[in-house]
Design a protein around this nucleic acid. Structure first.
Length: 528
RNA sequence: GCGCUCGUAGCUCAAUUGGAUAGAGCAACGGACUUCGGAUCCGUAGGUUGUAGGUUCGACUCCUUUCGAGCGCACCA
């Protein structure tokens, strides 16, 4: 729709221009502020220029009106243009909003340590990444989703130790001297009981079993994480193990060395990340020869770039923001274009319960489990809340508010609009086939604008994806639902002279809601 | 102390990325059918966009100042 409009305007203007949406639909469906930028050049007032330009326009099939308002040029689309598009959309629902982008993208997200279940902070990145993937794929991008499993570092050993000690205390009933650092969540005790069942309680009798427990526990935790994700309908296409890449270190290291981006000092190997804006050079190999976490990420990104995608998107927790510079530097040092890597940050989520703040601490174990929240508010509500806010700003929400399934929750409002349309169709005893070929003409201003709004979805999707701001889509869906409810309250449909026209109009609205919801991982309800 | 992110209605958040009168929901108050399901709609009230400057036709958006918040500042991941 937008493309046709741009083309039509281009023909008359014969120059570059900015196309935007007017603040008020009563002005028009699209607008351009071009008269302002021409004012200086032509030495005339924007108002006069806008008037002259409008006079030049041939309305053609597309436009119903081209009007100047305070220097802005406003375009109103014709009913027949919108109607043709509406008919096509109804007949091709699966193609609505599809685009033919060709870029290949590797999207990495969640990548939480396999040492415990997902908590509410992970959920935000998870839901955001999933929505981005769904929208991007709809637009034609070749997106591969990937989860990086940190199965190589200390934290896995710590998991084994925690399981071992927990088993000794809770299963063998022995006194345990807990070290300063260990995983203390209740899931550790649960897991120790599983270990007892699967491996026998003798496993807790010998320290030599810690190593084995850590590997066993890591696999169990990964399974748990996968099931946490499955509960909200998220499935990854690929899992990449940090450990499995470790023997490629030499290969990556040689590249860095060849480019003279590493040096040895104090028996450690450092990378010259300050050259590209990092605060300090970083150690990549310790004195004892063990590579650091950064080394793991260097190998991983080397591996990613070898796979030859056009673009790489990583969604990280905001606490990793200081890490971006060094990873980008490393990518550059390996000889790749670091511009291809885009790091999106998912900010912290502060959870409230009855107004009381919850402080989350990953190690201490008093964090909120994602699965708990999902079972309280449901996958749909969780998704919608998280996707309604910009991912990179702090978000606060109270679980209690989303416990009740009422109008406080916007997802119910949207579903209600969808279900309402469904109801009207059955009340009118009509089907889509009955109305899809009805011609939409002589519509009221409100109907005309509602039709336009419903057909706007493709542009919203494009905008949401390109700016990586999924809240544009949720905002759109809320607004469209609101327009529908408003229209419903002001117009009688069943039995009216315009019944069939309105039904066709509503069908497009429902379709737009349905497709939009689907792209954020929610199935629209036909009945409430 | 340094760096990153941010500060918008009482609360939770938007604002077409520099455009028109800064908008929604919740909370408050007042209204609307003999329901195409009121799980809806309409209205009222609420703002010097933290503060102080600057850039230009035009600033919530960009630059500078200052105050405040969160997160980082490992040879942990």
């Amino acid at each position: 729709m937008k493309k046709s409009v741009i083309r039509a305007i281009q023909e008359t203007l014969q120059r570059e221009f900015v196309l935007e949406k007017p603040t008020n639909l009563s002005f028009g469906h699209y607008a351009t502020p071009i008269a302002f930028s021409l004012a200086k050049e032509l030495k005339k007032s924007p108002i006069a220029i806008a008037e002259e330009i409008c006079a030049q326009f041939d309305l053609g099939d597309i436009f119903q009106e081209v009007t100047p308002i305070k220097g802005y040029i406003n375009f109103k689309l014709s009913e027949s243009f919108l109607d043709q598009y509406a008919t096509w959309v109804i007949q091709n629902e699966a193609l609505f909003g599809k685009d033919d982008q060709t870029e290949t993208i590797l999207l990495e997200y969640v990548s939480a340590n396999p040492t415990g279940p997902l908590h509410i902070g992970h959920a935000r990145g998870a839901v955001f990444g999933d929505a981005l993937a769904r929208i991007g794929k709809h637009l034609g991008y070749k997106i591969t989703t990937e989860y990086y499993v940190n199965d190589a570092g200390n934290q896995v050993d710590l998991l084994g130790l925690s399981l071992y000690l927990s088993g000794r205390e809770h299963i063998l009933g022995l006194h345990v001297n807990w070290p300063e650092e260990f995983y203390r969540g209740e899931y550790i005790i649960d897991l120790a009981h599983v270990a007892k069942t699967e491996l026998g309680s003798t496993i807790f009798e010998d320290e030599a079993n810690i190593k084995m427990l850590s590997i066993w526990g890591k696999d169990k935790m990964l399974e748990l994480i996968k099931s946490n994700l499955a509960d909200v309908g998220i499935e990854f296409e690929q899992f990449v193990s940090e450990k499995s890449l470790y023997d490629k270190w030499d290969e990556s290291f040689v590249k860095l060395q060849k480019n003279d981006k590493t040096y040895e000092e104090g028996a450690k190997i450092w990378i010259r990340s300050t050259e590209l804006g990092d605060e300090k050079d970083r150690v990549v190999v310790r004195e004892d020869g063990r590579p650091t976490y950064l080394a793991g990420d260097i190998i991983y990104h080397d591996n990613k770039f070898q796979r030859g995608y056009d673009r790489y998107i990583n969604i990280w927790g905001a606490d990793h923001h200081g890490y971006i510079a060094r990873v980008k530097a490393a990518i550059n040092f390996l000889g790749y274009d670091e511009q291809k890597l885009e790091v999106l940050l998912a900010q912290m989520v502060s959870l409230l319960k009855g107004g009381e703040p919850y402080k989350m601490s990953k190690r201490a174990g008093n964090f909120i489990l994602m699965s708990d929240v999902v079972s309280e508010v449901g996958s749909d509500a969780l998704r919608f809340v998280f996707l309604s806010k910009k991912s990179d700003t702090h978000l606060e929400f109270d679980v209690d508010v989303f416990k009740q399934e009422d109008s406080n929750n916007p997802i119910f409002y949207i579903n209600y609009a969808h279900a309402r349309i469904n109801q009207i169709f059955s009340k009118a005893e009509k089907t889509l086939e009955d109305v899809q070929n009805i011609t939409l003409e002589n519509l009221s201003e409100e109907a005309h604008n509602l039709l336009f709004s419903a057909l706007l979805l493709p542009e919203v999707l494009e905008d949401a994806f390109n700016s990586r701001q999924v809240q544009k889509l949720t905002e759109y869906l809320k607004n469209l639902a609101a327009s529908l409810h408003k229209f419903y309250n002001e117009n009688r449909v069943v039995g009216s002279a315009d019944e069939e026209k309105f039904l066709k109009l509503f069908a497009v609205v429902a379709l737009s809601l349905r497709v939009g919801l689907k792209l954020i991982g929610i199935n629209a309800k036909d009945k409430m």
